[in-house]
Amino acid sequence: MVVKASIIIPVYNAEDTVRRAIDSAVNQTTDEPYEVILIDDGSKDESAAILDEYADRYAYVRVIHQDNQGITRTRENGIKISQGEFVFWVDSDDYADAHLLEKTLPLLESGADVVIYGTQYFCEKGGKADNRIRKNISDATYWKQQALNANLSTIWTYGTRRRFWEGESAPSEVARSAADGYMTIRIFGKAESFHVLPDILYYHLVDSPFSIRHTFNGRRYLGNAFLWYYRLKCSEKQYPENTEACAARAMSGYIKAYAMDTVTHDLTEEDRQNIIKALQDLKRYSISGRIRDKLLGWAILHNQLWLCRIYAQHKNSKTQQMNKKMKKLIKD
């Protein structure tokens, strides 16, 4: 039997939400044959047992158990074993609409390389949901530029051909942060036809305090900086009007990465040397930037790291306070 689509769900310590995610995948209304791939990335809670439960119940569900590798490498492993002609992603604390495949597969089978659909951003404890509907534009150049501008950089907002993913591997700098943006640029770069659906077909949880979004360290900022530096180099060849903005974001990210590392110590010496090289290269661009970033940049290049430590300690303190408040809200 030819498998038309693969829904891939990476899972790590998600026992509280993963059933909702899997239920949304196994209960699709399409008549087309599809598979659901669940990858346990070394979970330490009951997630692995939950995944096995679904695999026993549904013939089209496959489970992979592996040592922890992080979500980026887990996704890449999912692509390697997937069999569907088209690929869709669901995060373990999110869920898909039951009509996701029914509404997107006919468009992909008719020739669209990428189908972009609406997303609802919701909070677990209530609050106003935020619907994100993309402009109904089919021009490929427009969407390639949107990816470079970071206006579309999450892989669960679209479905596409599996062959576009084959052979792709995110650089180590973005493996723990910013891989979505990097991969979207790569995938959109291969696509020639885009279709936009106004329907809300994906639901994204925004208030998880355990998300990478609420972690600020050298590694996370390095990923973001590397991605903006990559966008800068791509823009130089295709959209030179974007270069100044990309250069500013890259510089800010590299400076924050180096500064945070003075406290978190999660970068390698090679990472630090690469940051200094990038900052030297970014001097070629006209960057306005914040006074804070310019001061920290001077401190890095002149080895006055005490200034970086003051910034990093202040940033860590603010982050810890924010996460405590968020966890309390969710607990209450």
Rank of each mutant, 00 (worst) to 15 (best):
G223W: 04
I291P: 05
L232S: 00
N136T: 11
S6V: 05
K4S: 08
S43E: 03
D67L: 15
E124V: 09
A257T: 07
A48F: 13
R213Y: 11
R162A: 08
D56G: 09
D332M: 15
W306E: 11
Q238L: 15
P106F: 14
Y12K: 05
A179T: 12
H99G: 10
D67S: 12
K318F: 10
G127L: 02
M251T: 09
Y254H: 02
D261Y: 13
I8P: 02
D180M: 03
Y258A: 06
G218H: 07
M326G: 04
S235R: 03
D199F: 02
R292M: 15
G84P: 02
T154R: 07
Y230N: 02
V26P: 05
H195K: 10
K283N: 13
R62N: 15
V36M: 04
G118Q: 05
P209A: 07
K277S: 15
E15H: 03
T17S: 01
L205Y: 08
H99K: 09
A178I: 02
I300V: 04
I212N: 12
T72H: 13
L282N: 02
I22V: 04
D281V: 13
G42L: 09
H314I: 13
A147D: 06
I39E: 07
G159K: 00
V115L: 07
V115Y: 02
R75G: 08
Y221H: 15
G126T: 05
Y239Q: 00
C308S: 10
D97V: 02
Q120R: 08
N316F: 14
Q146F: 09
R75D: 08
S208E: 03
G167K: 02
L296C: 08
Q320G: 03
R219Q: 09
R186H: 07
S138K: 06
V3H: 06
H195W: 11
A179D: 13
A248F: 12
V63K: 00
R249M: 14
I310Q: 07
A25E: 03
R186K: 04
F122S: 02
Y121E: 08
H214A: 08
D281E: 10
T30Q: 05
K233C: 07
V174H: 04
G78R: 06
N77Y: 15
L279N: 02
R19M: 11
S286V: 12
R57W: 09
G84L: 07
G223R: 01
S47T: 02
D139T: 00
E85A: 00
Y182H: 01
D180H: 03
T72V: 12
